[in-house]
Protein backbone atom coordinates (compact mmCIF):
# COMPACT_ATOMS: atom_id res chain seq x y z
CA UNK A 1 0.00 0.00 0.00
CA UNK A 2 2.75 2.41 0.94
CA UNK A 3 4.51 1.68 -2.33
CA UNK A 4 1.39 2.49 -4.34
CA UNK A 5 0.95 5.72 -2.40
CA UNK A 6 4.58 6.72 -3.04
CA UNK A 7 4.12 6.01 -6.73
CA UNK A 8 0.89 7.99 -6.81
CA UNK A 9 2.45 10.93 -5.01
CA UNK A 10 5.45 11.09 -7.30
CA UNK A 11 3.37 10.76 -10.48
CA UNK A 12 0.98 13.41 -9.22
CA UNK A 13 3.95 15.65 -8.45
CA UNK A 14 5.43 15.04 -11.87
CA UNK A 15 2.29 16.43 -13.53
CA UNK A 16 3.08 19.66 -11.72
CA UNK A 17 6.87 19.47 -12.19
CA UNK A 18 6.41 19.26 -15.93
CA UNK A 19 3.70 21.96 -15.95
CA UNK A 20 1.24 19.59 -17.64
CA UNK A 21 -1.06 19.88 -14.65
CA UNK A 22 -1.26 23.68 -14.83
CA UNK A 23 -1.94 23.70 -18.56
CA UNK A 24 -4.56 21.01 -18.14
CA UNK A 25 -6.30 22.75 -15.23
CA UNK A 26 -6.40 26.11 -16.96
CA UNK A 27 -7.65 24.69 -20.25
CA UNK A 28 -10.22 22.44 -18.61
CA UNK A 29 -11.62 25.17 -16.39
CA UNK A 30 -11.41 27.74 -19.18
CA UNK A 31 -13.19 25.65 -21.78
CA UNK A 32 -15.83 24.16 -19.51
CA UNK A 33 -16.40 27.52 -17.84
CA UNK A 34 -16.79 29.29 -21.18
CA UNK A 35 -19.26 26.80 -22.58
CA UNK A 36 -21.16 26.47 -19.31
CA UNK A 37 -21.62 30.14 -18.48
CA UNK A 38 -21.05 32.22 -21.57
CA UNK A 39 -21.79 30.39 -24.75
CA UNK A 40 -24.52 28.30 -26.34
CA UNK A 41 -27.16 26.50 -24.38
CA UNK A 42 -25.86 27.85 -21.12
CA UNK A 43 -27.28 27.35 -17.68
CA UNK A 44 -29.28 30.60 -17.70
CA UNK A 45 -31.46 29.58 -20.61
CA UNK A 46 -32.62 26.23 -19.26
CA UNK A 47 -34.80 27.86 -16.68
CA UNK A 48 -33.93 25.44 -13.92
CA UNK A 49 -31.16 25.08 -11.38
CA UNK A 50 -29.23 22.24 -12.98
CA UNK A 51 -25.59 21.52 -13.72
CA UNK A 52 -26.58 19.39 -16.72
CA UNK A 53 -24.95 21.88 -19.10
CA UNK A 54 -21.64 21.68 -17.26
CA UNK A 55 -21.73 17.89 -17.11
CA UNK A 56 -22.27 17.50 -20.83
CA UNK A 57 -19.42 19.94 -21.55
CA UNK A 58 -17.10 18.16 -19.12
CA UNK A 59 -18.13 14.89 -20.74
CA UNK A 60 -16.35 16.07 -23.91
CA UNK A 61 -13.49 18.13 -22.49
CA UNK A 62 -12.35 15.26 -20.28
CA UNK A 63 -12.56 12.92 -23.24
CA UNK A 64 -9.93 15.00 -25.06
CA UNK A 65 -7.81 15.91 -22.06
CA UNK A 66 -7.38 12.53 -20.45
CA UNK A 67 -5.41 10.91 -23.29
CA UNK A 68 -3.09 13.93 -23.12
CA UNK A 69 -2.44 13.16 -19.47
CA UNK A 70 -2.08 9.41 -19.89
CA UNK A 71 -0.01 9.38 -23.07
CA UNK A 72 3.24 9.94 -21.22
CA UNK A 73 2.56 7.67 -18.24
CA UNK A 74 4.36 4.62 -19.56
CA UNK A 75 5.48 5.63 -23.06
CA UNK A 76 7.92 8.17 -21.63
CA UNK A 77 9.40 5.69 -19.17
CA UNK A 78 9.77 3.09 -21.91
CA UNK A 79 11.46 5.57 -24.23
CA UNK A 80 13.88 6.96 -21.67
CA UNK A 81 14.60 3.57 -20.09
CA UNK A 82 13.53 4.65 -16.61
CA UNK A 83 11.02 1.79 -16.70
CA UNK A 84 13.99 -0.54 -16.23
CA UNK A 85 15.01 1.22 -13.04
CA UNK A 86 11.45 1.38 -11.80
CA UNK A 87 10.68 -2.30 -12.30
CA UNK A 88 13.94 -3.49 -10.79
CA UNK A 89 13.08 -1.83 -7.51
CA UNK A 90 11.05 -3.48 -4.81
CA UNK A 91 7.80 -2.81 -6.68
CA UNK A 92 5.61 -5.05 -8.79
CA UNK A 93 4.30 -4.20 -12.25
CA UNK A 94 0.81 -3.99 -10.78
CA UNK A 95 1.82 -1.43 -8.15
CA UNK A 96 3.34 0.75 -10.88
CA UNK A 97 0.18 0.59 -12.99
CA UNK A 98 -2.18 1.25 -10.09
CA UNK A 99 0.00 4.08 -8.76
CA UNK A 100 0.03 5.82 -12.12
CA UNK A 101 -3.70 5.27 -12.57
CA UNK A 102 -4.52 6.78 -9.19
CA UNK A 103 -2.27 9.78 -9.73
CA UNK A 104 -4.06 10.71 -12.94
CA UNK A 105 -7.47 10.13 -11.40
CA UNK A 106 -6.41 12.34 -8.52
CA UNK A 107 -5.49 15.14 -10.91
CA UNK A 108 -8.90 14.85 -12.59
CA UNK A 109 -10.55 15.02 -9.19
CA UNK A 110 -8.58 18.16 -8.39
CA UNK A 111 -9.74 19.67 -11.67
CA UNK A 112 -13.33 18.76 -10.84
CA UNK A 113 -12.92 20.16 -7.33
CA UNK A 114 -12.21 23.56 -8.88
CA UNK A 115 -15.70 23.48 -10.39
CA UNK A 116 -17.36 23.28 -6.99
CA UNK A 117 -17.95 27.08 -7.14
CA UNK A 118 -20.27 26.36 -10.11
CA UNK A 119 -22.35 24.15 -7.83
CA UNK A 120 -22.44 26.81 -5.12
CA UNK A 121 -23.40 29.52 -7.63
CA UNK A 122 -26.25 27.54 -9.14
CA UNK A 123 -27.31 26.31 -5.73
CA UNK A 124 -27.67 29.91 -4.58
CA UNK A 125 -29.85 30.81 -7.57
CA UNK A 126 -32.38 28.02 -7.32
CA UNK A 127 -33.30 24.76 -5.80
CA UNK A 128 -30.53 22.33 -6.72
CA UNK A 129 -30.95 18.55 -6.78
CA UNK A 130 -27.94 17.68 -4.63
CA UNK A 131 -28.22 13.96 -5.34
CA UNK A 132 -28.07 14.53 -9.08
CA UNK A 133 -25.04 16.79 -8.71
CA UNK A 134 -23.16 14.22 -6.66
CA UNK A 135 -24.08 11.51 -9.12
CA UNK A 136 -23.01 13.73 -12.01
CA UNK A 137 -19.58 14.18 -10.48
CA UNK A 138 -19.39 10.48 -9.72
CA UNK A 139 -20.24 9.78 -13.36
CA UNK A 140 -17.46 12.10 -14.54
CA UNK A 141 -14.97 10.43 -12.18
CA UNK A 142 -15.96 6.93 -13.26
CA UNK A 143 -15.81 7.91 -16.92
CA UNK A 144 -12.38 9.48 -16.35
CA UNK A 145 -11.24 6.26 -14.69
CA UNK A 146 -12.29 4.27 -17.74
CA UNK A 147 -10.49 6.59 -20.15
CA UNK A 148 -7.37 6.77 -17.96
CA UNK A 149 -7.30 3.01 -17.98
CA UNK A 150 -7.62 2.87 -21.76
CA UNK A 151 -5.02 5.64 -22.09
CA UNK A 152 -2.63 3.75 -19.83
CA UNK A 153 -2.86 0.71 -22.06
CA UNK A 154 -2.31 2.85 -25.16
CA UNK A 155 0.73 4.32 -23.43
CA UNK A 156 2.09 0.88 -22.55
CA UNK A 157 2.22 -0.41 -26.11
CA UNK A 158 4.41 2.31 -27.56
CA UNK A 159 7.34 4.54 -26.76
CA UNK A 160 5.87 7.35 -28.81
CA UNK A 161 3.56 9.67 -26.89
CA UNK A 162 1.71 10.94 -29.95
CA UNK A 163 0.91 7.38 -30.96
CA UNK A 164 -0.28 6.75 -27.41
CA UNK A 165 -2.52 9.84 -27.49
CA UNK A 166 -4.09 8.97 -30.83
CA UNK A 167 -4.55 5.31 -29.94
CA UNK A 168 -6.32 6.24 -26.72
CA UNK A 169 -8.50 8.74 -28.57
CA UNK A 170 -9.28 6.23 -31.29
CA UNK A 171 -10.39 3.54 -28.84
CA UNK A 172 -12.16 6.12 -26.72
CA UNK A 173 -14.24 7.55 -29.56
CA UNK A 174 -15.90 4.16 -30.03
CA UNK A 175 -17.17 4.15 -26.49
CA UNK A 176 -17.80 7.86 -26.45
CA UNK A 177 -19.72 8.21 -29.71
CA UNK A 178 -19.68 5.35 -32.20
CA UNK A 179 -21.26 2.62 -30.09
CA UNK A 180 -24.15 4.95 -29.30
CA UNK A 181 -24.58 5.79 -32.99
CA UNK A 182 -24.38 2.14 -34.00
CA UNK A 183 -26.91 1.21 -31.32
CA UNK A 184 -29.56 3.34 -32.96
CA UNK A 185 -28.90 1.67 -36.31
CA UNK A 186 -29.37 -1.91 -35.14
CA UNK A 187 -32.24 -3.82 -33.66
CA UNK A 188 -32.39 -6.80 -31.36
CA UNK A 189 -29.31 -8.24 -29.74
CA UNK A 190 -26.73 -6.23 -31.73
CA UNK A 191 -28.56 -3.03 -30.93
CA UNK A 192 -28.69 -3.88 -27.23
CA UNK A 193 -24.99 -4.83 -27.26
CA UNK A 194 -23.89 -1.51 -28.76
CA UNK A 195 -26.34 0.24 -26.50
CA UNK A 196 -24.75 -1.33 -23.42
CA UNK A 197 -21.24 -0.51 -24.65
CA UNK A 198 -21.98 3.16 -25.17
CA UNK A 199 -20.40 5.50 -22.62
CA UNK A 200 -23.10 8.16 -23.14
CA UNK A 201 -25.81 5.71 -22.11
CA UNK A 202 -24.20 4.88 -18.79
CA UNK A 203 -23.02 8.40 -18.11
CA UNK A 204 -26.45 9.90 -18.73
CA UNK A 205 -28.06 7.31 -16.55
CA UNK A 206 -25.73 8.13 -13.65
CA UNK A 207 -25.81 11.91 -14.09
CA UNK A 208 -29.61 11.84 -13.99
CA UNK A 209 -29.10 10.74 -10.39
CA UNK A 210 -29.79 7.06 -10.81
CA UNK A 211 -27.13 4.77 -9.37
CA UNK A 212 -27.60 1.53 -11.24
CA UNK A 213 -25.36 -1.45 -10.52
CA UNK A 214 -25.18 -2.11 -14.27
CA UNK A 215 -23.53 1.28 -14.84
CA UNK A 216 -21.04 0.70 -12.05
CA UNK A 217 -20.18 -2.72 -13.46
CA UNK A 218 -19.67 -1.12 -16.88
CA UNK A 219 -17.25 1.53 -15.65
CA UNK A 220 -15.39 -0.73 -13.25
CA UNK A 221 -14.95 -3.49 -15.81
CA UNK A 222 -13.52 -0.99 -18.33
CA UNK A 223 -11.10 0.24 -15.67
CA UNK A 224 -10.03 -3.24 -14.60
CA UNK A 225 -9.70 -4.45 -18.18
CA UNK A 226 -7.54 -1.50 -19.17
CA UNK A 227 -5.28 -1.86 -16.14
CA UNK A 228 -5.02 -5.60 -16.64
CA UNK A 229 -4.04 -5.20 -20.30
CA UNK A 230 -1.45 -2.58 -19.32
CA UNK A 231 0.08 -5.03 -16.89
CA UNK A 232 0.14 -7.74 -19.54
CA UNK A 233 1.73 -5.29 -21.91
CA UNK A 234 4.47 -4.47 -19.39
CA UNK A 235 5.10 -8.18 -18.82
CA UNK A 236 5.62 -8.60 -22.55
CA UNK A 237 9.19 -7.34 -22.08
CA UNK A 238 10.01 -10.90 -21.03
CA UNK A 239 9.12 -12.23 -24.44
CA UNK A 240 11.00 -9.88 -26.72
CA UNK A 241 13.56 -7.12 -26.85
Amino acid sequence: MRTIWIMTKREFGSFFDSLIAYVMLILFLGISGFFTWLFGTDVFLIGQASLGAFFSIAYWTLFFFIPALTMRLLAEEIRSGTIELLLTRAVTDRQVIIGKFLSTLLLIMVALAFTVPYVITIGSIGNLDVGAVICGYLGLILMSGAYISIGMWASSITRNQIVAYLTALFIGIFFHLFFGMLASGFRGFTGRLFHSLSMREHFDSISRGVLDSGDLVYFLSLIVLGLFLSEVSLARRNLQV
Binding site: D17, G81, A90
Partner: peptide, 22 residues
Protein backbone atom coordinates in the same frame (compact mmCIF):
# COMPACT_ATOMS: atom_id res chain seq x y z
CA UNK B 1 21.36 0.56 -15.88
CA UNK B 2 23.07 1.33 -19.15
CA UNK B 3 22.81 5.02 -20.13
CA UNK B 4 21.70 5.90 -16.59
CA UNK B 5 18.01 6.69 -17.18
CA UNK B 6 16.60 9.41 -14.89
CA UNK B 7 13.61 11.74 -14.71
CA UNK B 8 14.87 15.10 -16.00
CA UNK B 9 11.95 17.04 -14.50
CA UNK B 10 12.61 15.90 -10.95
CA UNK B 11 14.80 17.75 -8.45
CA UNK B 12 17.70 15.62 -7.17
CA UNK B 13 16.52 15.43 -3.57
CA UNK B 14 12.91 14.63 -4.53
CA UNK B 15 14.15 11.87 -6.77
CA UNK B 16 16.29 10.30 -4.05
CA UNK B 17 13.39 10.57 -1.61
CA UNK B 18 11.12 8.84 -4.11
CA UNK B 19 13.60 6.04 -4.73
CA UNK B 20 14.20 5.58 -1.00
CA UNK B 21 10.47 5.25 -0.46
CA UNK B 22 10.08 2.70 -3.24
Amino acid sequence: PENNPLYPDMPVIDYLEYVAGL
